[in-house]
């Protein structure tokens, strides 16, 4: 079940996840917020109970360390039409001489949605197959959404695509990741021209460079803007608001409890 490739570097080795909860013995552990399986991608480490991160620890929970993980890879059967799509996709990739195991990093089934994590080298081939194979026919791409996980070392930047098949009335999600040091993902514009502006938007906000895009320039921010504003390390940029005798800091400067 454990997928070393997707776990990144921060897998706790002792199986107890560093906070005294052992998911194998404690049956209710899987329901704890940070414990949805021990095999998903770790996106952040939570310290303390209440998330207050400035000021001294007065709660006594300051030593608590939990890792927050996204839902991990699912095993067959995925249920419903998910298996059908996965089978067809794997078969179609094999026909093209590709090894499905190389292209599809893992498959996550969560909350009634299926996500195929694709290795970025194979993204265009997979998308082309998904669009053209008669049994798949995902004609409509609803754009790309970038997500920045600074805690997911080596896979910081994710590009998430939702594909809709009008023929078969299905929606799947493709996810590719790229490290911060090499933020390149192949462009899907040749397969789905609708992604033109969506990829420019994601480049603008996250600095993900879509190789092969016809004109990858900023779209929302002014052309001379510095930085990529929707990355997690980019500040919100608010200014303190002054009232009579008081000053309220910007939302990102306030004490947070998350």
């Amino acid at each position: 079940m454990s997928d070393a490739k997707s776990n990144g570097a921060n897998t706790p080795g002792d199986g107890a996840n560093g906070n005294g909860v052992n998911p194998e013995k404690d049956l209710g552990a899987a329901n704890l917020p940070g414990m949805r399986g021990d095999h998903g991608e770790e996106i952040r480490v939570q310290r303390g109970m209440f998330g207050a991160n400035n000021g001294g620890d007065t709660s006594g929970y300051g030593g608590l360390v939990r890792s927050v993980r996204l839902p991990g890879a699912a095993t067959r059967p995925y249920g419903g039409w998910f298996d059908e799509v996965a089978d067809e996709l794997e078969g179609a990739l094999e026909e093209q001489g590709l090894v499905p195991g190389n292209a599809i990093e893992k498959t996550v089934v969560d909350r009634g949605e299926v996500t195929f994590h694709i290795e970025r080298e194979y993204l265009v081939a997979v998308a082309q197959t998904l669009r053209d194979d008669p049994a798949l026919r995902f004609e409509l791409c609803t754009g790309v959404s970038g997500v920045h996980y600074p805690g997911d070392k080596g896979r910081e930047l994710h590009a998430v695509y939702h594909l809709r098949s009008i023929t078969h009335n299905r929606v799947i999600r493709l996810e590719v990741s790229a490290p911060d040091a090499d933020p390149h993902v192949p462009s899907l514009v040749p397969v789905y021209p609708t992604n033109d502006w969506h990829e420019r938007e994601t480049y603008d906000f996250f600095g993900l460079i879509f190789d092969g895009h016809p004109a990858l320039t900023r779209i929302m921010m002014p052309d001379d803007w510095q930085g990529f504003p929707q990355r997690k390390d980019y500040p919100l940029g608010g200014i303190p608001v002054e009232y009579k005798g008081a000053q309220i800091p910007a939302p990102d400067q306030r004490r947070s409890y998350s």
């Binding site: 002054e242 009232y243 009579k244 005798g245 008081a246």
Partner: peptide, 11 residues
């Protein structure tokens, strides 16, 4: 007088 130096309610 700058707003911040005014005294009184937060109005």
């Amino acid at each position: 007088l700058p707003t911040i130096e005014m005294k009184g309610l937060l109005r």
